[in-house]
Design a protein around this nucleic acid. Structure first.
Length: 479
RNA sequence: GGCGGCGUAGCCAAGUGGACUAAGGCGGAGGUCUGCAAAAUCUCUAUUCACCGGUUCGAAUCCGGUCGCCGCCUCCA
């Protein structure tokens, strides 16, 4: 097995990756709070996690991935009450939409999607442990974690307790705390919560923000597991607090490698709900931009690098997605040529030496790049470099049907990680009608009736069907 | 104020001490193909890596400083 190295936020270094159990990786990836539709910035994180998961499998590991669904928090409670529906009714729509988007973006399903509301007993059990271990205190029925009881607090985020700003927090939801830096494990019921509460051994109320991740990761992955990931904004306080809860509750080891993705930017500003500069996936795809291009764009930069989206639909600026579509067209065109070769030639025998050299070189540089902390740009460089090398040979008619099979196998192998090489499904296009029109155009061209020929081309173009005349015949594709 | 990150061609983005005379994509220029197009394809497109010093035989890559940008410290992927 080749070496795989990841940057670990905890040590701030790239380290060789070694799972706790040989050949099996257990990872916990922070998921959405289902209080609204997820936006592209959120999906950058899930695509990073998807690439991570696929890369682990590509390197031969089996993967057990957990992604939490936060379906109870201040926002979900407030908004469901505003809408006058139950919490479950409210969150269901966003959960369903989330999974639709995952499919559209070809994000592989995790093994578990635990919902916070279905794991209250596990959370209560952990809080009881924390109480027993002397890390908590109670005020008005709410239970808080006392940060001063955990000397290692702040190690992940590299913050010193004294440097944390004191007294800044003026959140009306916060109850009485000894120290503003302490955080809630359990929030006692208030009238604003309506019928959202659980009657438990630690009181009537609901869980704090951080406890679900500690409790659910332990349930599905054990107390000690390999990778925990999320956006950089979760380093502090969320992941810092998880570490405090898990170590103080369970003891022993918690997470080996912490991985965090940088943000998606819009014109050099973080994409976020509060800045109101966010785009939902369906908003973007409804304008004709393919989800595949969105996926390509979101995965095209290294995950720890901020990625800037150049997109302003109101002013018809779609640069980022245009670039992605252009790159995908190049791949599609290349595969079309390979397919044509395979139809024409003998498919027995061995691939040529030139091709085998190109494949070997590309294969090793692709895998080497991914192994180097998911250097996706290096991997895409290997992909397009290979296409360029082979195109040169194609131009000289030096590529055989057997070569084409080997090359397409390589692409399909890579697509296990990238998930962008397979083209979009053609959907509800009337293929028969289009091909009949193309045949009619062919006849017209043979009869030098170019007026009719161009008329057909324009008609199809108006339906988003692009016609291309090539030496090997007419090709068409959906724009 | 504390912590962290970034600044590479018109744009996006790799490379983090030596084969860099700096990947790859978009855009641009020219050629091929074409009835004309479009698409595709080929070739070209940074003597240089924000700026100034330093370390080194050698730096985009390490160190120090300057300028600019961004994120976290409060819900956030």
């Amino acid at each position: 097995m080749e070496e795989l190295r990841f940057y670990n936020t905890f040590t701030r270094r790239k380290e060789p990756f070694k799972p706790i159990i040989a050949d099996e990786v257990r990872m916990y990836t922070c998921g959405p709070t289902v209080h609204d539709f997820a936006h592209l910035g959120n999906y950058r994180a899930y695509i990073f996690e998807d690439i991570l998961r696929r890369t682990l499998k590509f390197f031969g590991y089996s993967v057990i991935q957990v992604m939490n669904l936060t379906d109870v928090d201040d926002k979900t409670i407030r908004k469901s009450r505003e809408r006058g529906v139950t919490l479950q009714e409210y969150t269901r729509e966003y959960t369903e939409s989330f999974f639709e988007d995952l499919d559209a973006l070809r994000i592989e399903r995790a093994e578990f999607y635990p919902e916070a509301t279905k794991h209250i007993p596990e959370m209560v059990e952990l809080i009881e442990k924390l109480i027993a271990n002397g890390h908590t205190y109670e005020t008005d029925g709410s239970i808080y974690f006392r940060i001063s009881s955990f000397p290692a607090y702040g190690r992940l985020a590299n913050v010193k307790l004294d440097d944390l700003r004191s007294g800044v927090r003026v959140d009306s939801d916060e109850y009485e705390k000894e120290d503003v830096r302490d955080f809630a494990l359990w929030k006692s019921w208030t009238p604003d919560d309506g019928d959202v509460f659980w009657d438990t051994s630690i009181g009537k109320g609901r869980p704090g923000w951080h406890i679900e991740c500690s409790a659910m990761s332990t349930k599905y992955l054990g107390e000690h597991f390999d990778i925990h990931s999320g956006g950089v904004d979760n380093i502090f306080p969320h992941h810092e607090n998880e570490i405090a809860q898990s170590l103080c509750g369970y003891g022993g080891d918690f997470v080996n490698v912490w991985m965090h993705n940088a943000h998606l930017m819009v014109n050099s500003e973080k994409m976020s709900k509060s800045l109101n500069n966010f785009f939902k996936l369906k908003e973007v795809t409804s304008t004709g931009i393919s989800p595949r291009a969105v996926r390509y764009f979101l995965l095209s930069a290294h995950y720890r690098q901020p990625l800037n989206l150049v997109y302003d639909p109101d002013n018809n600026i779609t640069d980022s997605f245009d670039a992605a579509s252009g790159a995908l067209d190049r791949i599609d065109e290349f595969r079309t040529k390979l397919a044509e070769l395979q139809k024409q030639g003998e498919d027995s025998g061995e691939a040529g030496d030139d091709i085998l050299d190109i494949i070997d070189k590309a294969r090793s540089s692709f895998k080497g790049a991914l192994g180097n902390d998911l250097d996706i740009s290096g991997a895409l460089g290997a992909l397009f470099g290979m296409i360029k090398d082979v195109n040169r040979l194609l131009d000289e008619a030096q590529v055989t049907a057997v070569d084409a099979v080997a090359l397409d196998d390589l692409l399909m192998d890579w697509d296990r990680v990238l998930g962008v090489i397979r083209p979009e499904e053609r959907g509800e296009i009337d293929v028969e009608r289009i091909e009949a029109l193309i045949e009619e155009r062919k006849q017209a061209r043979q009869a030098k009736d170019f007026a009719r020929s161009d008329e057909i081309r324009d008609l199809l173009a108006s339906e988003g069907i692009i016609i291309q005349d090539t030496p090997g015949g007419v090709r068409w594709r959906k724009k």
